[in-house]
Measured scan of single mutants.
Amino acid sequence: RPRTRITDDQLRVLRQYFDINNSPSEEQIKEMADKSGLPQKVIKHWFRNTLFKERQ
């Protein structure tokens, strides 16, 4: 599967949610997917990777 490119607008949506809650529920992930147009799987990976980077 090719790598998903996240646009600036999509990144802005993800960052807004991450700043509020870095561990979103399934419902919140679905909401983000609707707003950003990204697949839920991509959003889950983005949150996991971003949380890991923040903790380092």
Score class of each variant (00 low, 15 high):
R1P: 07
R1Y: 13
R1C: 08
R1M: 01
R1K: 00
R1T: 04
R1G: 05
P2C: 01
P2G: 12
P2Y: 10
P2R: 15
P2D: 15
P2H: 12
P2V: 13
P2N: 15
R3D: 15
R3C: 03
R3G: 15
R3Y: 09
T4C: 00
T4A: 07
T4E: 10
T4D: 13
T4K: 07
T4F: 15
R5V: 15
R5L: 15
R5N: 15
R5A: 10
R5C: 14
R5Y: 15
I6F: 10
I6Y: 08
T7K: 04
T7W: 01
T7M: 07
T7C: 03
T7P: 09
T7Q: 05
T7G: 06
T7R: 07
D8C: 14
D8V: 10
D8P: 15
D8A: 11
D8K: 14
D8M: 09
D9V: 07
D9Y: 07
D9G: 10
D9R: 08
D9P: 09
D9F: 12
D9I: 06
Q10G: 01
Q10T: 03
Q10H: 13
L11A: 11
L11K: 14
L11D: 06
L11N: 11
L11E: 15
L11S: 07
L11R: 13
R12Y: 03
R12Q: 09
R12W: 02
R12A: 08
R12D: 06
R12I: 13
R12T: 06
R12F: 06
R12V: 13
V13P: 01
V13W: 12
V13N: 05
V13A: 05
V13G: 03
V13L: 14
V13I: 14
L14Y: 00
L14N: 00
L14T: 00
L14I: 05
L14Q: 00
L14R: 00
L14P: 00
L14W: 01
L14C: 02
L14S: 00
R15W: 08
R15V: 05
R15S: 10
R15A: 05
Q16I: 02
Q16H: 09
Q16W: 09
Q16F: 06
Q16Y: 05
Q16V: 07
Q16C: 05
Q16S: 15
Y17K: 05
Y17D: 06
Y17R: 03
Y17A: 07
Y17P: 00
Y17Q: 06
F18N: 02
F18L: 08
D19R: 11
D19A: 15
D19I: 10
D19P: 04
D19S: 12
D19T: 11
I20D: 09
I20M: 13
I20P: 13
I20W: 06
I20R: 13
I20E: 05
I20N: 12
I20S: 11
N21W: 03
N21M: 09
N21G: 07
N21L: 05
N21T: 15
N22S: 12
N22P: 11
N22A: 13
N22R: 15
N22I: 10
N22G: 07
S23C: 14
S23I: 02
S23G: 04
S23W: 05
S23Y: 05
S23D: 14
S23V: 05
S23P: 06
P24Q: 01
P24V: 03
P24N: 00
P24I: 01
P24W: 02
P24A: 01
P24E: 01
P24L: 04
S25R: 06
S25M: 02
S25I: 03
S25K: 11
S25A: 08
S25E: 08
S25C: 05
S25Q: 05
S25L: 03
S25Y: 03
E26K: 12
E26Q: 15
E26F: 10
E26D: 14
E26M: 08
E27T: 12
E27Q: 13
E27F: 04
E27D: 14
E27N: 08
E27R: 11
E27C: 11
Q28M: 07
Q28N: 07
Q28D: 04
Q28P: 00
Q28Y: 03
Q28W: 01
Q28I: 11
Q28A: 11
I29R: 02
I29Y: 06
I29C: 04
I29E: 04
I29K: 01
I29L: 14
I29V: 11
I29M: 12
K30P: 01
K30Q: 04
K30Y: 04
K30W: 02
K30N: 01
K30H: 07
K30E: 08
E31K: 11
E31N: 03
E31S: 06
E31Q: 02
E31P: 00
E31V: 09
E31H: 07
M32T: 01
M32N: 00
M32V: 07
A33M: 09
A33D: 00
A33N: 06
A33I: 01
A33C: 07
D34V: 10
D34E: 15
D34G: 12
D34I: 09
D34Y: 05
D34S: 12
K35Q: 13
K35N: 08
K35F: 04
K35G: 03
K35E: 07
K35I: 04
K35A: 04
K35P: 00
K35L: 07
S36C: 07
S36Q: 07
S36W: 06
S36V: 11
G37D: 09
G37L: 04
G37W: 02
G37V: 03
L38V: 12
L38E: 01
L38D: 00
L38Q: 01
L38G: 00
L38S: 01
L38T: 02
L38M: 04
P39L: 04
P39M: 05
P39Y: 04
P39S: 13
P39V: 08
P39G: 12
P39C: 06
Q40E: 15
Q40R: 13
Q40H: 13
Q40T: 14
K41L: 12
K41I: 11
K41N: 10
K41W: 03
K41F: 04
V42Y: 06
V42H: 03
V42L: 09
V42I: 09
V42E: 12
V42K: 10
V42D: 14
V42Q: 10
V42P: 01
I43K: 00
I43G: 00
I43Q: 00
I43V: 12
I43A: 02
I43H: 00
K44V: 09
K44Q: 04
K44R: 10
K44C: 05
K44W: 06
K44F: 07
K44L: 11
K44N: 04
K44E: 08
H45A: 13
H45S: 13
H45K: 15
H45Y: 11
H45N: 14
W46C: 02
W46H: 00
W46Y: 02
F47I: 04
F47T: 02
F47N: 02
F47A: 02
F47Y: 04
F47Q: 01
R48C: 02
R48E: 14
R48A: 11
R48T: 10
R48D: 10
N49S: 10
N49V: 10
N49T: 11
N49A: 10
N49P: 01
N49R: 13
N49M: 09
T50V: 09
T50A: 08
T50C: 04
T50P: 04
T50G: 06
T50E: 11
L51K: 15
L51T: 10
L51Y: 12
L51V: 08
L51W: 04
F52A: 14
F52Y: 14
F52Q: 11
F52D: 09
F52W: 07
F52N: 14
F52H: 06
K53T: 13
K53V: 07
K53Q: 14
K53A: 13
K53N: 11
K53P: 06
E54R: 09
E54N: 13
E54Q: 13
E54M: 09
E54D: 13
E54C: 07
E54A: 08
E54Y: 04
E54P: 03
E54V: 07
R55H: 13
R55M: 09
R55K: 07
R55S: 14
R55D: 15
Q56C: 15
Q56H: 02
Q56P: 05
Q56V: 01
